[in-house]
Design a protein around this nucleic acid. Structure first.
Lengths: 280, 280
DNA sequence: CTTTGCTGTTTATGCCGTACACATAGTAGT
DNA sequence: ACTACTATGTGTACGGCATAAACAGCAAAG
């Protein structure tokens, strides 16, 4: 096995989704390689992850890895699913907002433990079972709202990108601090030759003297709150619309004589929805 | 010149902020290097930007570049400011929301022209004059609101990261499509071996059959709207608070007998604010 | 006329991913 | 029991990357 060329995605799917491989008592094995790679990336970041170093860590030659993994790219895919498997989503209760916030904070925690997660780039990473489980759970937080399917997907995508963007700045500052031995604050504090030239920028100067940089907001908390507020605006909007129209055909909804809120405009629509739910 | 080592940030400041260098009629020069590098990155992305290729494009040897630029990192800093200089911020009118949206869309356009902008990583890029001008303008859009200084800064940071995150997925898909000759849609459409395994994920399946992926939201437009909605919630909240307290000392505000909204609680506060505005 | 500094070149070091040919060992088939 | 095949690990090599260090030519300054 592992004979597929590095650019055969289907082989990657196979590697990701086959479960419970027996691990040989000695020698290399895919899970061992992946775990070593995760450790390495935790220590040195994704840029510091090289096939050579992974092999060294395991006490084998570089090329031995290629007997088990098609290449570096696929190794990263496998690492992704590995760490998501270590942090299963704990089902939360509450409204959509509480659950979505919990899911975002969970992703944030995972990225603090494995900072390289946010550094993974590329649009064609085959998701493994754990990644899909996470994604499905994120989607489920909004499934109960009146958001349209495409909107649910868009919101989840946005939240994911938000967490990654925040994690990315975090890991970058951390790494530069570790590499140079100079803290971010110190480094920027030493840029006098830069600050000398900033007088001519009015708003910047004003916010500076007003102390805007002295007690900055927590970037993640602040951003997450704004983001959820923005989603909430949309959810409320959709809820209002839902209250006025048929959930199946979108037609107008006459108020029920009983005063109880109606969902479908006719018995026909109600049954169509029921059948759709059974089949799909 | 250009004798500073690659890890001397002050030398980078010097390079970025000195204006109007005379360009020699022939031979290398910093502006020519930067322009060639921008062209290259436009074509091949930031990962495709190498000192070798820049030098080739100019018809010089690799090492000749190092006579003018300390290293690749500083070159990227210079490229950043170069392209921001090509797209000056057009002053917009309107409320904070219209202006902030315009500024975000402007940044989005720049990133579509120079996709590598979003790929620039690292927390210690010295900003050049054009970068600072852009930043100052972004800050100014919110200066008229009741947001606290730290909140203005946080919002601007969030918007910037949002645009970069969206630009990043765009450039990544584009590049993979160009590299492989297979469109994103085709590629994912060919992953049958993956889709076979997704039945067990309920929300995912439900949204799939509901057609959530058939007509996806425009990621940038959708996200920007949510984001601005979220900021608006905060602005409104702060405005309410502002209406109830003194803009200078934060103390309670008694309603004026005339009914006209008051801003300061006392003449003393009004004068303090006036003096502060004159000095800062 | 020589010294100095600016500019470009040459060579070399140490990373990286991975293609390819080879060695070895265990196993299935006869 | 002998053979052929397969799985697994190794060694060497190629092309690409950033950049350090030494060197060569040339122009202006002394």
């Amino acid at each position: 096995m592992a004979r597929g060329r590095a650019d055969d995605p289907d082989h990657g799917v196979e590697l990701l989704w086959r479960a419970g491989d027996r691990e040989p008592r000695q020698g290399l094995s895919l899970p061992r390689i992946v775990r070593a790679a995760v450790e390495l990336a935790d220590d040195e970041g994704l840029a510091g992850l090289s096939m050579r170093k992974v092999a060294d860590r395991l006490g084998f030659t570089t090329m031995s890895l290629y007997r088990h993994v098609p290449g570096r790219g696929q190794l990263v895919d496998l690492m992704l699913d590995e760490v998501l498997g270590e942090h299963p989503q704990a089902p939360e209760t509450g409204g959509w907002r509480a659950r979505l916030e919990a899911v975002a904070r969970h992703a944030w925690e995972i990225r603090k433990r494995h900072p390289w997660l946010a550094e993974v780039r590329g649009s064609r990473h085959v998701p493994g079972p754990n990644a899909v489980a996470h994604y499905d759970y994120m989607l489920s937080t909004l499934a109960g709202t009146a958001l349209r399917p495409s909107e649910v997907i868009a919101v989840v995508g946005m939240v994911g990108r938000f967490v990654d963007a925040e994690a990315l700045v975090l890991v970058e500052t951390r790494r530069e601090e570790r590499r140079s031995g100079v803290s971010e604050e110190e480094w920027w504090g030493s840029r006098d030759s830069l600050y000398e030239r900033l007088d001519r920028y009015p708003t910047l100067s004003h916010l500076w003297t007003a102390g805007g940089w002295d007690h900055p907001e927590d970037s993640f908390d602040f951003g997450l709150r704004r983001l959820l507020d923005g989603v909430e605006v949309l959810v409320r909007q959709r809820d209002e619309i839902r209250d006025e129209m048929c959930a199946e055909c979108g037609g107008p909804l006459e108020p029920a004589p009983s005063g109880r809120p109606r969902v479908y405009c006719s018995r026909a629509c109600q049954q169509r929805a029921y059948r759709r739910r059974r089949n799909g």
